[in-house]
């Protein structure tokens, strides 16, 4: 089914992030084959040229590699993989900080809140982990 995309952000960057998340979460294993560009365009309901661009970007960032006419594969370079995790984390933290800054909360207060909420979420999602 087509995923809901943000209309204002370049679709190709959204596709790149989608794959980074899957890689960081371990849903896509190093060396795993990527779907063909055409297949992915069909699944996501987006323009094949956009998918092409997303793949190109991921190749530039060394997330993917392609040998000859073979399907693209996820990199096996562990450095790149850890980097992706860091990058996603940093992104999320930056967004979070930008969102709480205007409220004027202290770091201590935040830390306790984050810890509390993090554990709570863990309990909640832990129970329904069937997917």
């Amino acid at each position: 089914m087509p995923e809901i995309f943000n209309q204002r952000e370049p679709v190709y960057l959204q596709v790149v992030r989608h794959f980074k998340e899957k890689i960081a979460a371990g849903e896509l294993r190093p060396g795993e084959e990527m779907p063909s560009r055409r297949e992915l365009a069909g699944n996501l309901g987006i323009n094949p040229n956009t998918v092409q661009r997303a793949y190109k970007r991921m190749e530039e960032e060394n997330l993917l590699y392609t040998e000859g006419n073979m399907p693209s594969k996820i990199t096996e370079d562990t450095n790149v993989l850890t980097q992706v995790r860091h990058e996603l984390m940093l992104d999320a933290v930056e967004t979070f900080i930008a969102a709480v800054k205007p409220i004027g909360v202290s770091l201590e207060e935040l830390q306790t809140k984050v810890e509390e909420q993090f554990l709570l979420e863990d309990v909640q999602t832990g129970g329904e982990k069937n997917d």
Binding site: Q7, R8, E9, P10, V11, Y12, L13, T50, R53
Partner: peptide
């Protein structure tokens, strides 16, 4: 459409 999103952060509808 993609350039518009990338450079100006605007959707086609915008």
């Amino acid at each position: 459409a993609e350039e518009m999103r990338e450079e100006k952060g605007k959707s086609v509808v915008d």
